[in-house]
Measured scan of single mutants.
Amino acid sequence: VAKRKCPDHGLDLSTYCQEDRQLICVLCPVIGAHQGHQLSTLDEA
C-alpha cells in the first residue's frame, strides 16, 4: 500500500489533526495551517 503524501510539504501523512479531522504531515503543525491544533498519532486516532 502506497503512503499518501501531504500536498503542501510532500511528506508522508503520519499525524491526525483532531480540529480539522484530517491526516497531516509532521511539518503541518510546525510551519503549516495546523499550528496550535490538537493532534493525535495514527495509533491514537
Rank of each mutant, 00 (worst) to 15 (best):
Q38P: 11
L11M: 09
Q35D: 05
E19C: 08
E19V: 08
H37F: 00
L42V: 13
I24Y: 04
S14H: 11
C17Q: 02
L13I: 05
L23C: 06
L27N: 15
D12R: 04
D20G: 03
I24V: 09
P29G: 07
H9L: 01
L27A: 09
T41L: 07
E44R: 10
Q18G: 06
G10H: 12
E44L: 07
A2G: 10
S14N: 15
D8S: 11
R21A: 12
V30W: 05
G10A: 07
P29M: 10
H9E: 01
V26T: 15
Q35H: 13
I31W: 06
R21F: 06
D43M: 08
P7I: 07
I31N: 15
S40C: 11
L11A: 06
Y16E: 10
L13F: 05
L42N: 12
G10S: 08
C17T: 01
R4P: 03
E44A: 13
K5M: 12
L11Y: 11
G36V: 03
C6G: 00
L42I: 12
S40A: 12
R21E: 14
C25K: 02
L42K: 14
Y16S: 05
G36C: 05
D20K: 03
L27V: 05
D8G: 04
V1Y: 04
Y16M: 11
V1L: 04
C25S: 01
P29H: 11
G36P: 02
C28R: 00
P29A: 07
Y16V: 09
V1T: 08
A33E: 10
L13T: 08
L11G: 05
Q35F: 05
D43A: 10
D12F: 05
T41K: 14
D12A: 06
I24P: 03
L23H: 08
K5H: 04
H34G: 02
Q18N: 12
I24F: 05
C6W: 00
T41D: 13
C28M: 00
S40I: 08
G32W: 01
L42Y: 13
T41A: 13
I31D: 15
L27G: 04
G32Q: 03
L23Q: 15
I24G: 04
D8V: 13
V1D: 06
I31K: 15
Q22M: 12
K3S: 09
G32K: 04
L27I: 06
Q35Y: 08
D43S: 11
S14M: 09
D20A: 02
D20N: 03
G36D: 08
G32S: 03
L13V: 07
H37W: 00
A2R: 06
G36S: 06
L39C: 08
R21S: 15
D12Q: 06
Q18R: 09
L11R: 12
A45E: 07
D43N: 11
Y16H: 09
L23V: 09
I24E: 03
H9S: 00
Q22Y: 13
S40V: 07
L11K: 13
G36H: 10
G32H: 03
E19D: 14
L11W: 04
E44D: 09
T41C: 11
G36W: 03
D20Y: 02
L27W: 04
H37I: 00
K3Y: 06
